[in-house]
């Protein structure tokens, strides 16, 4: 609320006003702290549990006494060994996910920028019709496309390949739409000036539009990377086995972080090993957290402006 001058009729009224103000502040901060704790507790619990050995945790459970503090008596790196080791195999999940995220983001950005440029700056017949059709598809739930895409993937022999992970969701109408709006805000005079200087369309795109639209492009990159990191349903469908042709053998596990976590830690190996499960979750969370801390401003601004869940 705005700072404002307040005048009081009497000393008592002023005191009452000040007391009220303090109480309001205490209530506000109290409420926000409680809600903040609700948000933070799962993270805290994740961290302390990851440092407990399975035996120590089971012992705590047997005695009905969860230790909610990190003490030297129960401190152990047992879970970290499991998660990164052969049975947990998180190293492979990381590599797969990073590779998929980076390549698919690069692919998405290139195709989206080109398409948005065509929609925003180039005149040709049928442009508006295509754009309207694409906008219309944004309402349609992805599950409907997934049914046929799954078949297409199988027919193309793309199961357990990176191609299925990268190309099937490689182009997003939303990103094209978002970029087009940014491109359209760039004044037309700039385009005409560039033409006089002898720039063609693509030179103009490369030398003028992309630098000007860079904040939007970075936002799209971040959203796309985050989306790739958190993707679960599609990887679970097409990337849950071994890679069919890497090194000529079916040796490379194709799981990404989310579906690897789900299938290894929630269903099979560690289904009844709670600390291992929680540590696996921690490993799926930490890289994105670091990413968030570095790009905090970009992410928060980008998300509130674009308004989607990545």
């Amino acid at each position: 609320m705005a700072e404002h001058e307040v005048y009081f009729a009497s000393e008592a009224q002023m005191r009452r006003y000040k007391a009220q103000k303090i109480i309001t502040q205490v209530l506000l901060y109290g409420f926000l702290t409680i809600m903040g704790l609700f948000i933070v507790i799962p993270f805290y619990y994740m961290i302390i549990t990851s440092f407990k050995s399975t035996d120590a945790y089971n012992l705590e459970v047997q005695h009905g006494q969860l230790n909610l503090l990190l003490t030297s008596s129960n401190f152990s790196f047992e879970q970290y060994g499991k998660v990164m080791g052969k049975s947990g195999d998180f190293g492979t999940f990381y590599l797969n996910t990073i590779y998929t995220a980076v390549v698919s983001t690069a692919f998405t950005v290139v195709t989206s920028v080109l398409a948005a440029f065509a929609f925003a700056r180039v005149n040709f017949k049928g442009k508006d019709l295509i754009f309207t059709i694409l906008l219309g598809t944004m309402m349609i739930p992805g599950e409907m496309m997934m049914i046929t895409n799954f078949q297409t993937t199988m027919a193309l022999n793309w199961k357990d390949t990176f191609a299925a992970l990268i190309f099937v969701h490689g182009v997003s109408v939303f990103y094209i739409f978002y970029l087009r709006q940014t491109f359209q805000q760039i004044p037309n005079e700039l385009f005409l000036a560039a033409k006089v200087d002898g720039y063609g369309h693509f030179a103009y795109l490369w030398k003028c539009m992309i630098p000007i639209a860079m904040p939007t492009i970075v936002t799209i990159m971040i959203l796309s990377l985050m989306g790739a990191w958190n993707a679960y349903i599609w990887p679970q469908l097409v990337a849950s086995g071994k890679h069919p042709w890497l090194f000529g053998k079916n040796v490379h596990d194709m799981h990404l972080v989310s579906n690897g976590l789900m299938s290894k830690f929630q269903s099979t190996e560690f289904a009844s090993d709670d600390p291992a499960k929680v540590t696996g979750s921690l490993f799926a969370t930490i890289p994105l957290f670091i990413f968030f801390l570095i790009f905090r401003k970009y992410i928060m601004r980008g998300v509130s402006r674009s308004g989607i869940k990545g």
Binding site: P42, Y45, M46, M226, W229, N230, Y232, V257, S258, N259, L261, M262, F265, Q266, K277, V278, G280, S281, L282, A284, T285, L288, F289, F291, F292, I299, V303, K309
Partner: peptide, 11 residues
Amino acid sequence: YVTNAIALGMV
């Protein structure tokens, strides 16, 4: 927002 729905679901 920046966490994995699967991971935190397991927590």
